[in-house]
Design a protein around this nucleic acid. Structure first.
Length: 891
RNA sequence: GGCCGGUUGGCGCAGCGGGAGCGCAGGUGCCUUACAAGCACAAGGUCACAGGUUCAAAUCCUGUACCGGCCACCA
């Protein structure tokens, strides 16, 4: 067996493990009891992974590795998303930098450029996923624009089209004049801005009660060019007299009606609302109700169209200034107020969105809502943490028809064909250039592409052969769980549920796990513009992948966001340090070193079963059995933070700090004692590595290679068997746990006595333990271990042993520990300490006495609680008596 | 406007009905041959505030005050 290197070289080991796993082809496990299929939320091909991905992927990998080790048929499907707008914007920018414009080169060449981009960045992303240790199925990557995937998307469109779930309509959509495309409501972001409320005078055609104009209030004066009405509230009876009258729209000299509509709030502004049906969704709705004309004054880049004289060709901003100037010049600007309001911005390019009237495709959601709601209310799909269920249901309830067409080139082109000759129109699975109705050759395809989310809604099943190869899907759908961020519950999760329930008549996954949003150290969102984002690859480089993963796992609690502890250089934007990741790295190092100790002490080892030779052995086996239960249940319930803490506590505080220390004395012995200790150490380490592996795959796999193995053991820890709680359950031993607890107390007592009196560790002490009878054997059994750990020269233990002269006594549960300090101690300090101890114990005793003399408590509390507290009180009173006896002795 | 989180030792966080925990930082002492990226020991909190429910509240309920997020969008 080759020796383990003294230091753990993360970069080299990680690379070697990746090669090993890939060579062994362990990623996909096809045969097994039960299925664990997980689809990775496909990252956009636009660039690098961020901390959110790192968190998401770590959680998934922990879950997937755990299931693989448990023997489930396991497949974690890898893929990337073509991300329509995002990618197109990036490619546009890249081409622009080379002096090329999209329109110049045309659609086909532009799409080629997008593919080049995809191939470059898609590969980059796969590489990053790999470096994090993610055990995705690398042999079968998917992309939302793959041919087979595209076929699925097309089928969804065609089926919904023919089932009347997809329709085309002229509607107000959120238009981005920069990206020149519509975007969905969910893709619009509101931003608070300081603006103005302009009060404009609109002259009445006929004066009413001597009044010859009314005042409308607007935040967007430029849209007045397209006004076709003025509305008042039906509750605002002062304005009843105006209803039915007409105003002469300034500049345009158009007569437009005044009407009443419930939408209007009489209390806001002037109480008169100018109505521009083509440039505001609410005005559009009013326009529909009152049969108003919809006049579109802007082109696709939000410049004023032909026919508006001096205003034609102006941008929105220029037009606003010009219109306001015109009103001022003509004495029609009543007044201007400051007004704080929110304005929609494009989530991609951040331009202010323009509500714009245009022809778009929509999905009618009415028929999809029911099953998608039912899937969650029935409990078939569960959200973790549970509170997200309500968010989902609220969103589902308020769901409106979904605008799915985008005026882009990069994406799934809408498969609707039109005949220019006879007006035929249909959605087709295969392209055609001949009209099936009239045989004409003037057939054209719709120019628009589909919303990216339209294609990603099929992710759980179009990545698994649907619609052609249903055999692949069998047994792997619904998938086990979806792990994702809360901000795409509506955009993505909900739509996957709708698509899956519609096309497969089943849910896409059983559980939805929402992880916390990762914030920067100061509690704000990590963002590119602020330069406070942390790059997971930098963390891996500095601390290793296992350290990054483990730290991230500790952050998974029920919280909805977490602050990531990392310092970033403001100028270079490079990672300075991440203290908590550094702590996690210490844990990795600890695992490495402890393993090195065990493996370095295996001389003369022969394989054999673990046997609890001492109570210490029984104790660590018992703790291990409990750990396996906690970890197994924890991962199953997605409680990763708790799992990480339990693993850390077991390995560091129990295994390293106590068990390995106990073992040192036994390893110095010879024969059976040494051999059995070696076997026990190997047994515990082996199981601990298995339990740690899903969280920290690299270091555990690397160490495991060095471990002695049973005949026929699996070739890699990654596919080795999980320590199931049931098979370890027989090791659980509460007596041993109690005994070792007492024993640790004895060691601690000597150590703290030593520290209190400033006695050098080199100075050995004589120690006498007066133990309760049932504890005597344990202490005798481990006396040599205790002597090593507490630096004791002479260790005696007996029930009722008298306190030696000039000794310091410490009372612990089940024993009294006397350290002989002849000539070393100032007993005043000892008196003070004991008095403090007495006070604390007396306080505790009073607390419990009070509780136990409360008739309500005795009558109503659970019997085992009462029993436990009685025992506790007895113990405290016993300790108190001993402390008081010692105080009396000191005088 | 509606909904959801948070408020626990100097800092970052766990715990979410039965004696206040973890990790850092700080203190003291140790290079005890696995580990100084370490070990030991000690110190540090009336669990935001006010009511209530309960035999019992950091934990459940109501309200208040600050932080943070999501959804809606009144021109």
């Amino acid at each position: 067996m080759e020796e383990m290197p003294k230091t753990y070289d993360t970069a080299a080991v990680e690379q070697r493990m990746l090669d090993k796993w890939l060579e062994g082809d362990y990623y996909r496990r096809s045969a097994g009891v039960g299925d664990c299929t997980v689809t990775i939320p496909p990252p956009n091909v636009t660039g690098k992974l961020h901390m959110g991905h790192a968190m998401d992927d770590t959680i998934q990998d922990t879950f997937v590795r755990f299931n693989r080790m448990r023997g489930r048929s396991t497949r974690w499907i890898l893929g990337t998303d073509h991300a329509g707008i995002a990618t197109q914007t990036k490619v546009d920018k890249k081409l622009a930098a080379e002096g090329i414009s999209r329109r110049e080169i045309g659609r086909d060449k532009f799409i080629d450029a997008c593919w080049d981009w995809t191939n470059e960045y898609g590969g980059f992303i796969v590489e990053q996923v790999k470096r994090m240790g993610c055990s995705v199925d690398f042999s079968d990557p998917h992309f939302t624009m793959d041919d087979d995937y595209a076929k699925g998307v097309r089928k969804v469109f065609c089926d919904w089209y023919h089932d009347d779930l997809i329709y085309r309509g002229k509607r107000i959509v959120n238009w981005c004049p920069h990206c020149t495309t519509a975007i969905a409501d969910d893709e619009a972001e509101y931003k608070e801005e300081d603006g103005h409320l302009w009060h404009l005078r609109y002259p009445l055609v006929e004066p009413i009660d001597g009044q010859d104009y009314i005042v409308v209030a607007t935040t967007r004066p430029e849209t007045m060019l397209g006004d076709t009405g003025v509305a008042v509230s039906p509750k605002d009876h002062d304005k009843d007299k105006f209803v039915g009258a007409k105003v002469m729209l300034p500049i345009m000299d158009r007569e437009i009606p005044i009407f009443s509509d419930f939408y209007v709030d009489a209390g806001f502004g002037s109480g008169f609302v100018k109505v521009t049906p083509a440039h505001d969704p609410n005005d559009f709705a009013m326009g529909e109700r009152h049969g108003l004309e919809k006049i579109n004054i802007f082109d696709e880049t939000a410049h004023v169209v032909e026919g508006y004289g001096e205003f034609t060709g102006m941008s929105r901003e220029e037009c606003r200034e010009a219109v306001v100037a015109w009103f001022e010049e003509h004495g029609l600007l009543d007044h201007v107020e400051d007004h704080h309001h929110s304005v929609m911005h494009c989530y991609r390019c951040d331009s202010a969105l323009e509500p714009w009237l245009s022809e778009q495709w929509f999905v009618a959601v009415d028929k999809l809502k029911g099953p998608a709601t039912e899937a969650v209310t029935s409990g078939n799909i569960k959200f973790h943490p549970e509170r997200w269920t309500q968010s989902y249901l609220t969103w589902m309830e308020n769901l409106k028809d979904w605008c799915i067409s985008r005026q882009l080139w990069w994406g799934h082109r809408i498969p609707v064909f039109y005949c220019e000759d006879c007006g035929w129109e249909d959605a087709l699975m295969e392209d055609t250039d001949v009209c099936p109705k009239c045989g004409g050759h003037h057939v054209r395809q719709d120019e628009d592409v589909l919303d990216t989310w339209f294609s990603s809604q099929l992710w759980t099943f179009a990545t698994q052969g649907w619609p052609d190869n249903m055999e692949l899907l069998k047994g792997h759908h619904p998938t086990a769980a979806l792990f994702t961020a809360r901000d795409i519950i509506a955009l993505w999760v909900a739509r996957m549920i709708m698509a899956s329930t519609y096309f497969l008549d089943e849910i896409p996954f059983h559980d939805v796990v929402i992880y916390a949003t990762i914030l920067a150290k100061d509690g704000t969102r990590m963002s590119k513009s602020k330069g406070n984002g942390v790059n997971p690859m930098d963390l891996i480089e500095k601390y290793g992948a296992d350290a990054m993963r483990f730290n991230l796992l500790t952050l998974v609690t029920n919280n909805q966001d977490v602050r990531f502890d990392a310092n970033i250089d403001k100028k270079t934007r490079e990672l300075i340090d991440s203290p908590r990741t550094e702590q996690a790295r210490s844990f990795v190092t600890k695992i490495w070193n402890a393993s090195r100790f065990v493996l370095g002490n295996l001389e003369g080892f022969t394989p054999g079963e673990p046997v609890a030779r001492t109570q210490a052995d029984a104790w660590i086996f018992s703790r291990l059995a409990r750990l396996s239960k906690v970890v197994t249940e924890g991962i199953s319930a997605y409680q990763f933070g708790e799992v990480a803490r339990e693993l850390h506590n077991f390995f560091w505080n129990e295994f390293c700090d106590w068990y390995i220390e106990f073992s040192k004395a036994s390893l110095r012995a010879e024969g059976e004692e040494r051999l059995q200790t070696q076997r026990n150490l190997v047994f515990v380490l082996d199981n601990a590595l298995r339990l740690l592996h899903p969280a920290m795959p690299f270091v555990t796999e690397a160490i495991w290679e060095h471990l002695p193995k049973a005949e026929g053991e699996k070739p890699a820890l990654m596919v080795a068997a999980w320590p199931e709680p049931e098979t370890l359950a027989s090791w659980i031993d509460p007596d041993a746990e109690r005994a070792v607890g007492m024993l640790c107390g004895v060691v601690g007592a000597v150590r703290s006595t030593r520290a209190r009196y400033g006695i050098s560790p080199k100075q050995e002490l004589a120690v006498v333990v007066n133990a309760q009878p049932e504890n005597v054997t344990v202490l005798e059994e481990l006396s040599s271990q205790i002597s090593v750990m507490a630096r004791v020269s002479e260790f005696t233990v007996a029930a009722g042993a008298p306190k030696p002269a000039e000794s310091a006594a410490v009372v612990v549960e089940g024993a009294e520990v006397y350290s002989v300090l002849t000539g070393m101690v100032d007993f005043d300090a000892e008196r003070t300490r004991l008095a403090k101890e007495q006070k604390k114990l007396a306080g505790d005793a009073a607390k419990f006495s009070k509780k136990l003399s409360n008739p309500g408590f005795l009558a109503k509390a659970a019997p085992e609680i009462v029993e436990k507290d009685r025992a506790k009180l007895a113990e405290i009173e016993d300790q108190l008596a001993r402390v008081e006896a010692q105080l009396a002795e000191l005088g």
